[in-house]
Amino acid sequence: MSHEDKQSAAMQSTAMQTPLVKTRELTKYFDMGRGQRVHAVDGVSLAIAEREIVGLVGESGSGKSTFGKTLLGLHDKTAGEVRFRGEALPAHYRAADYQRLAGNMQMIFQDPYSSLNPRMTVGEIVGEGLSLHAHLKSAEVKERVAEWLRRVGLQPDHMSRYPHEFSGGQRQRLGIARALILEPDFVVCDEPISALDVSVQAQVVNLLGELKESMGLTLLFIAHDLSMVRYVSDRMAVMYLGSLVEIGRADELYFDPKHPYTEVLIGSNPEPDPKLERGRPSTAIQGEIPSPVNVPAGCRFANRCPKVMDVCRQVTPQLIPLKELTRQVACHLY
């Protein structure tokens, strides 16, 4: 597909009337006692179209994982709403809500070592969702598990084994099979490849890509590896200290970042090309991400921003669309 084709396809998809998943001012604070609160996610509005892959990047502590979990109801919402196919989801999930939504929305977790119960067999782990939600006979569950193990590149006779008998890449495949066996429409992938070696990352990414094509999945792909996110995603969203600073088409955003933070983030990402690296000035910035307990007034990036202005320290910039690009940026420069 040529660049123009893809661009128009992406514009069509973003212009679609009802996005599959939409958050409006989604907010999650954690109470720390003594009147202190962690502002983990603060007013994030994001729409994800059907069959779209949105990559969410940001430093650790920026709230990406909390956003993904709150979106799925694994954390209660503090404020804001999540709509799935236009239906507003409850702020606090009851057992029946999980039961109802499990077939639509699923999650693939970051750490394939701690997210699989070591005392359950592979058959039990992958098949648990089916036995709980699909009302199938155990023989049918077994059949489906065998089919899914094959689909993710494992053997059906692995069913009686335990997680410790598998390598990291194989465990991540188990996590994928467990999430996808209910054939959900929407999957949050929380750093699905960061615990894996380079050669195995490509295996898992390609597997996700194939399954997305064959099942029509919609994905929120959370990661900190910028090159991989650009490769995987249609659109890319950048998060800093609980709020979105920039959203746009993955390629455009990567090669032409507008927000100073995106620029720093992408400039800090070392490229596997020595000639390019030698010619590139260092974009390292001073300081670290501030604590989300005492969120600074105004723009949250102001104290580290190389282009900071007076207004930045007083007024919080809103995400506004840029005229010439399919891009939204929260910065007073625009």
């Binding site: 400039g267 070392p270 260092s282 390292a284 001073q286």
Partner: peptide, 10 residues
């Protein structure tokens, strides 16, 4: 993180 990585490598 990549931004801190860049500082340490520098």
């Amino acid at each position: 993180d990549v931004t801190i990585q860049a500082q340490i490598l520098d």
